[in-house]
Design a protein around this nucleic acid. Structure first.
Lengths: 219, 219
DNA sequence: CGGGCGGTTGATTTGTGTCAAGGAGGGTGG
DNA sequence: CCACCCTCCTTGACACAAATCAACCGCCCG
């Protein structure tokens, strides 16, 4: 007899802004699907500097990055009011045959995660700070499902510019300057918690002009 | 009745230097364990520039990076005479129950792969080119199993300096210069296809002095 | 012998980090 | 409601590491 996976899964939340879904060195035993809200993953070094490894949105799974370890190796922090579903891994074995399907799902998710990371590695290095920001906004647009009328996109930023800087491997000052430049060029409009993409076509072209012509086919 | 995994696995090789174990857009259907030799994974963009995403050694599994896709998304190129074992994934289902164990193994491997990539992302950005090279050599030492007498390590480089540059996100000229600097400081000795680590302790110290104090605990 | 590729070196430019300062917004307490 | 503070963000002047451009060497291989 095969039990349903859903009997193991339970909803958790809400987590308020700044609350942690899990933290570094908590015992790793569950993945979490984000039902609503936004989550960042951060590492904190000895000097107290935080380093952002990614932002995650509804439908995304977090915890994958800790598979293979005993403990979580990142803090998962809600950036808005957030609900998640907990998927405990230690009890999956009681599912019987369907464990194969679950494993298959995890493999697929991990595969995507590897692609994503490899992509960042091979692409990111060869992009200017302005390009990195545009790529970032493009990603947000895809994930975030913006209401878009006539190719003009208003983009809410749930994370601070400091977090964006950390994620993109830049300093906050550089983010600020790059945004100003893009604004002067008429590509975007920079507000505090919002970015407005004025000229999507120009933006896309700018992303592709990698200094060494990398990955021009991706556009 | 449970068939043995090993009945599905067969040895392939030798691949000579420059030969491809698989290439981009080949149908993805197998992983490969490297039995002997060295393999690099590269992407080639439209302008013909190649971008190295990693080097792999005996015991490593390649093909993981393409899981989830229909085709391989990198070229796997032998850097020396290389033997591999092919692990076809499409016939794993005929293994019956033991598929769970195989899947579990794959999950573990993918997990490590994610860690590795995340690490590169969060660390790499904050290291100078000299530090990146030292980290690279350190990695080679670990993987490559050098015969080491009295903490003086001679390190054979199967890959070109150009490949190293690409992998580390630098230009060949910068690699050259960084090596010269390290040599002038007495840390290493730079030969054409060999690096000699003269002062391991100094090397380790240099790696740790991240500009922003990142990950000092790793040392 | 000659061509090509990998590697090295030098002169110069440039992007982005660094340091220092100031501003805008939001929250808290009087 | 205002004053204060704190954090996030922005701006400017400057420094520096690495990219760029150009040239050259040495090795391998036809």
């Amino acid at each position: 007899m095969m039990r349903d996976v859903s009997t193991l899964i339970q909803s958790k939340g809400p987590y308020e802004t700044g609350e942690r879904i899990y933290k570094i060195q908590d015992q790793f035993k569950s993945l979490f699907i984000i039902k609503s809200g936004v989550v960042k993953l951060e590492k904190v070094d000895n000097d107290g500097n935080s380093h952002i490894s990614g932002f995650y949105f509804p439908g995304d799974v977090i915890g994958l990055e800790s598979i293979g370890d005993e403990q979580y190796n990142y803090n998962a922090i809600a950036l808005e009011k957030t609900w998640v579903c907990e998927i405990p891994l230690d009890r999956l074995e009681s599912l019987g045959q369907s464990i194969i399907a679950v494993q298959q799902t995890i493999i697929t998710l991990l595969g995507k995660r590897v692609h994503q990371a490899d992509d960042m590695l091979t692409r990111g290095r060869y992009l200017s700070s302005e390009q990195r920001l545009l790529v970032f906004f493009e990603m947000l647009c895809k994930r975030y499902f913006i209401q878009t009328i006539d190719s003009k996109k208003k983009l809410h930023l749930p994370m601070s510019k400091v977090d964006i800087a950390s994620y993109l491997g830049m300093r906050p000052e550089s983010v600020s300057r790059a945004l100003r430049n893009l604004q002067n060029q008429g590509v975007i409009q920079n507000h505090l918690k919002t970015i407005e993409i004025k000229d999507l076509n120009v933006a896309k072209k700018m992303i592709c002009k990698s200094r060494w012509g990398l990955l021009r086919d991706k556009c």
